[in-house]
Amino acid sequence: MAKVKLGVKIRETGTGSLVDAVIEPVTLKDYKIIKQSTGRFNKFDWSLYKKKEVYKLRLKANTTILGLMCLIDHTDPDTNAIEIALLEVSVENIGNNKQYDYIGGCLIAFACRESFKRGHEGFVSLVPKSSLIEHYTQHYGFEYFPMQTPSRPCGLMVLYDHLARNLIMKYLSAS
């Protein structure tokens, strides 16, 4: 499946206006930039994901990366899903003083769109931290499955069917 570039809109919090942005695959050059832009993506070591399917969200007008997401495509028929393995919004866009909103939403909606496109029927999963479970549900509509084992205490969260479509409608329909 060819990796794609998708136009999206994010919201400038100061003005409330929608701004053109793009989601596209991360290049090797981007990994250097991510490493050098100390402080903006400081939560995870993205260089460990170089060989994986990683996307960035940037403004259409410039190259500044505002969000990153790693997807894993589970193509075997029994799983048939896209897993969001990692996602990070740039530090200046987290919290009350963020410059742009909808970055995380657009990235997760993009994962849903890829899931439909690749024949996974919109099925998207992530492994939550226990403290974030209710917020993933409230914010993005993820459904929680508590199937705990000693090695996997937090269960799984999934989007599927109309929940995935809702997210695509909310974040990608303005594009």
């Binding site: 939560k43 995870f44 997401m69 897993e83 969001i84 393995a85 990692l86 996602l87 990070e88 919004v89 866009n93 987290i94 919290g95 009350n96 970055i103 995380g104 939403g105 992530l126 492994v127 939550p128 931290k129 403290s131 974030l132 917020h135 993933y136 409230q138 914010h139 993005y140 090695s151 996997r152």
Partner: peptide, 18 residues
């Protein structure tokens, strides 16, 4: 987790799984 509320984190972060 200290720096952000859980609501802010869920909107912006997916931590790595196992």
């Amino acid at each position: 987790e200290k720096k952000h509320t859980n609501k802010e984190l869920a909107a912006s972060i997916v931590f790595p799984g196992p």
